[in-house]
């Protein structure tokens, strides 16, 4: 039951964060697009791992996701710090 109470918080946080990134990079849409691609790849790798029941090593670890996003968000430390709040094992 506690989990159900916390889900909207996480969802709202994610909405606000995506909105913040969109606004920050509205003149550099390629950065936002790259960010979406990183997330998409991460999700795909997580799904592969889940479906293989642990017999698949993800090509993109949490550390690599963080490193890629750090490169993308250089000089935007607030965005990177906030991203760290989402990432498991960051």
């Amino acid at each position: 039951p506690q989990l159900h109470n916390t889900q909207p918080v996480e969802f709202n946080h994610a909405i606000n964060y995506v909105n913040k990134i969109k606004n920050r990079f509205q003149n550099q849409p390629e950065i936002y697009k790259s960010f979406l691609e990183i997330l998409h790849t991460y999700q795909k790798e997580q799904r592969n791992m889940k479906e293989s029941q642990g017999n698949y090593t993800p090509k993109l670890t949490e550390q690599e996701v963080y490193a890629e996003v750090a490169r993308l968000f250089k000089n935007q430390e607030d965005l990177l710090a906030e991203f760290g709040q989402f990432l498991p094992d960051a």
């Binding site: 916390t6 995506v18 909105n19 960010f35 989402f86």
Partner: peptide, 26 residues
């Protein structure tokens, strides 16, 4: 603004599931 495209929604979905996973692992 909150003018979200389906791609944006997908990003929100991934981020919120990451956050849930993070919470679950703590």
């Amino acid at each position: 603004s909150f003018d979200f495209t389906p791609v944006d929604s997908a990003a929100v979905f991934v981020l919120s599931s990451m956050a849930r996973q993070r919470r679950a692992s703590q």
